[in-house]
Structure formats: C-alpha cells, structure tokens
Design a protein around this nucleic acid. Structure first.
Length: 267
DNA sequence: ATGGTGGTCCTACCA
C-alpha cells in the first residue's frame, strides 16, 4: 500500500513542527504541500529528512504561494506549469519511480495551488476572479492531453457540491462556491474523466470539509468548506482503497486554516 | 452591510 497526503500548510517554515507531528502520527509515503511561502533554499529540508523523507520537489517563491512534495519514495520532477503566465509558483509535477513505487511506478503526481480569486465574484471589477477562472480553463486544456495514470491534488479553492459547504444557499455569491466556479471546475473534471476521490470514499451526505477561516473558527461556529481535493484519472482511481481528512489538525496549536487529506492506493 | 484572523516582510498584499 502507498499513501499520499496533501496539505495547505500556510507557511512551511512557521509550521515545520506541525508537519513533523503529522508525518510521525500518520506516516504517509508522500506529502504534497501548498502555500509553503518561501523560496527553495529556505525550505526546511532537515525536518523531513530526519523522518525518512529524502526526496523532494520544491517550487517556491518569496513570501507567497509555493508548492512542494516530500517523499520516502524516489520521485523525479517533470513539470512546473504556470497556468496564469504571471510567474507565481502554484504547481509542481513529479513521476513516481520504481521499484519502491510498486504498481504506481510511472504514475504522475500533480500538486497544484489554484488561486483563491479575491472577494468579488465578478471579473470586470475583480481581476483576481478572472485569473482564477482562466487558470482553471488552462488546466482543462492541459488535462485533455494526459495519457498516463495521474493524480492531481491540492488546494483547488473551489467547493463544488452543495454539501461541500456549511450553508449552500448563503455561499452562492461567495467566491469558492459560485455557480460559475463550480461549472468551470466541472469542465475540468469532464476533460479527463477525473474521479473525485474525496467523494468516492466519503459520499454525500458524509461530513467533509477541509478549511475553516481563521476569522470565524475561534467562535466555534464550524463554518467549513471542502476546498482541498484529490482527483484521479479513471485508470488510477480503481487503485484507491481509502481516503480521509485529518480534521484534528485544525485544533492543534498554531494551526493551518486547512487540514490534510490522505489517500491509500494498492501497490 | 460590516468585520472578523493570520503570514510575509517592513508596507501593503495575499488569503
């Protein structure tokens, strides 16, 4: 069995200790991180290496965004897409190398941080919202070209289903859950027949949220959204055995506003 | 309709 985790960590330097705790307690084979918020030389490699994660793909930038993959299994970086063409570090893709990868050898793992999209869900007054939709459209074009077993994980910043938010009706005009975002993400799903592993294993109406705002969590209002995802190409999805989200990390000291996801695959 | 919290880097910007 091989397990793959994904977590928007909101500064990997500030929360290296939380990452180490997660790796110690859950022991995934591979961890994908989003929002590392540092450049590649500042990445806390030693904290991972001490726990057996010795293979890396780090695509960072100063202060904002940034993604990384740490792995116990050999990996090889294969791509860094810039789906906004603006230089932001929001993607890194790797290939899993055998024989430690077993049946997953040759699989491609794509780690993505889709733009949040600003406050107003209208591209004429909020360029960030347009950039988010354009990013998704370019991802859709890219997905149509794939010809290998692929897993795409990360912070999608979209909660597609009514049950993916605490109040569907109240969030229809809130960026992350607007109909245009849901439709645009739906076209991405259709472009490659992606299987939403989260809802494959935890179907509606099971509780499944991955993010709680810092601005309301302290009030214990439990206003969550499912913004983080793991989607598998159809051939790969047959190998997924289990999937969960580790909600308790949201209550750790000094938490990220996102919680990690973990999928186990037959290998 | 408003404001609520947090990270980076040092002045706003991003989420």
């Amino acid at each position: 069995m091989i397990s793959i985790a994904s977590w928007n960590i909101n500064s990997v330097r500030l929360r290296a200790g939380l990452v180490a705790r997660f790796l110690t307690e859950e022991a995934p084979d591979i961890l994908c991180l989003q929002e590392i918020k540092c450049q590649e030389p500042q990445f806390p490699y030693a904290a991972f290496e001490a726990l057996g994660y010795t293979h890396f793909a780090v695509h960072g930038q100063k202060g904002y965004h940034g993604v990384a993959i740490a792995s116990r299994i050999p990996i090889r970086e294969v791509a860094r897409h810039d789906w906004q063409a603006n230089g932001e570090a929001r993607h890194v893709g790797v290939e899993l190398l055998g024989p430690q990868a077993g049946a997953l050898a040759g699989m491609v793992l794509e780690n993505v941080y889709i733009p949040a999209g600003g406050d107003a869900p209208d591209r004429t007054i909020n360029p960030k919202f347009g950039q988010k939709l354009d990013f998704l459209e370019r991802m859709t074009q890219w997905a149509g070209t794939l010809d290998r077993p692929t897993l795409i994980v990360g912070d999608f910043n979209v909660a597609p289903l009514p049950e993916d938010v605490y109040d569907h009706k109240a969030l229809l005009k809130v960026v992350s859950h607007t109909p245009i975002e849901v439709e645009t993400l739906g076209r991405f799903a259709d472009a490659h027949g992606w299987v939403d592993l989260g809802r494959k294993h935890l179907p509606v109406p099971e509780r499944y949220w991955s993010w709680w705002s810092y601005r309301t969590f302290w009030q214990e209002k439990d206003r969550g959204r499912r913004l983080d995802h793991m989607w598998a190409s159809p051939d790969l999805s047959a190998q997924s055995l289990s999937h969960r989200f580790v909600e308790e990390t949201r209550r750790w000291e000094g938490p990220s506003d996102h919680v990690p996801l973990i999928t186990e695959f037959a290998s």
